[in-house]
Amino acid sequence: MNSIRKKEPIFKKKRFRSEEKKDMISGYLYIAPFFIIFTLIGLYPALFSFYLAFQKWNGLSPMTFNGFGNFQLVLTDPLFWKSVYNTIIMGVMGTAPQLIVGLILAYLLNMAFLKFKSFFRVTIFMPYLTSMVAVALIFSVLFSNHESSLANYVLTHLFGLDPISWAASEWGTKIAISLMVFWRWVGYNTIIYLAGIQSIPNDLYEAATVDGANKFQQLWYITIPMMKPFIILTVFTSTVGAMQLFSEPTVFLGADAFTRDEAMTIVMYLYRDAFRLQSFGTASATAIILLVIITLFAVINLRLVQGFGRKKRGVQK
């Protein structure tokens, strides 16, 4: 009897381990489709692109090892550095204002006295849902080279300036594309900021009101420090999006996009090498250089935002 009683826990333990193993296998099977698709669509192309960066290949002939020749060719090309300059300038002009304006709009949309909040929130978010074809049509009319375009009408009649050939001048093109980026993405960041503001407890604002803080002081000392995780998220995503600028210049300039140096971005340079010049080796090298640039700018922006948060806390003390 004693031997039988001793064997019962062992049997239950083995059965428990068997059930645990079945649950573990079932869990892996549920998540397996994601990893399989990610490997085929994400991981394999990335590894192949890294391998291709050291090869000379036009897509048809056999690959030949080129070492760092592709990187040297890209880094010594003046057009590449022009594309880096254009990407940074249009990225700063298009993304930095939208982060500031998005935070202000989110703060205003959260005001208690504001009526028709749902209408304004949907209206602000609509540009993000608009197709690029519609965006191209809208901005081609707004920033037409003709003197009667809306942008030139505002310049000439309200500010007394001369009309600008927006699609023919370097800074006119950069300004128009930056405004397109701003118009399309400001609503996206506004909604993220609005969600962050609504997660802040109202007790903080009530206590600040009792202490005599006005709305600006509440925004500066409560809202912005508490919004730090959301600001870091938008800064990171905006930095990555700015460095990957492609759709806006191509739809604004149309067929002339890849022949205009003043609007050439890094991704457009990459696309031109790969699908117009059939130089997949230099295109892959450009992609790796772009990854390094994105990482560098993302780290710098995150450091600046985190440092701003620490400075704010130091002031409050």
Rank of each mutant, 00 (worst) to 15 (best):
S3A: 15
R5I: 15
P9E: 03
F16T: 14
F16S: 14
E19T: 12
K22S: 11
S26F: 15
Y28L: 15
I31L: 13
I36E: 09
A46I: 14
A46D: 05
L47M: 13
S49Q: 09
Y51K: 15
F54P: 00
S61N: 15
M63D: 07
T64S: 15
T64A: 13
F65W: 11
F68M: 12
F68L: 13
G69T: 00
N70F: 03
N70H: 01
L73I: 10
T76E: 10
P78D: 02
L79N: 09
F80R: 00
W81C: 00
T87I: 06
T87S: 02
I88H: 01
M90D: 04
G91V: 08
M93Q: 07
G94C: 06
G94W: 03
P97R: 02
L99R: 06
V101P: 00
L105K: 02
L105W: 05
K115F: 12
F116Y: 14
F119A: 10
F120W: 09
V122A: 15
V122C: 10
P127N: 08
Y128C: 04
T130E: 02
V133Q: 02
I138D: 05
I138E: 04
S140K: 13
V141I: 11
N145Q: 01
S148A: 13
A151V: 03
V154W: 02
T156P: 00
L158I: 11
F159P: 00
D162T: 11
S165R: 11
A168I: 12
E170C: 12
W171R: 03
T173D: 01
W185R: 07
L194P: 01
A195C: 01
I197P: 02
Q198L: 09
S199L: 07
E206K: 08
E206Y: 05
A208R: 03
V210R: 02
N214A: 08
Y221R: 07
I222W: 01
K228G: 08
I232T: 09
T234V: 13
A242V: 04
M243S: 02
S247V: 14
S247G: 10
E248M: 04
V251R: 06
F252R: 03
A257Q: 02
T259V: 11
E262F: 12
E262Y: 14
T265Y: 04
I266D: 00
V267C: 01
M268A: 02
L270P: 00
Y271N: 09
R272H: 12
R272Q: 14
D273E: 15
L277I: 12
S279R: 13
A283D: 03
T286Y: 05
T286C: 04
A287M: 08
I288H: 09
I294Y: 02
I294A: 06
F297D: 05
V299Q: 10
L302H: 09
R303L: 14
V305Y: 05
G307K: 08
F308G: 10
K312M: 14
R313Q: 13
G314F: 09
V315I: 10
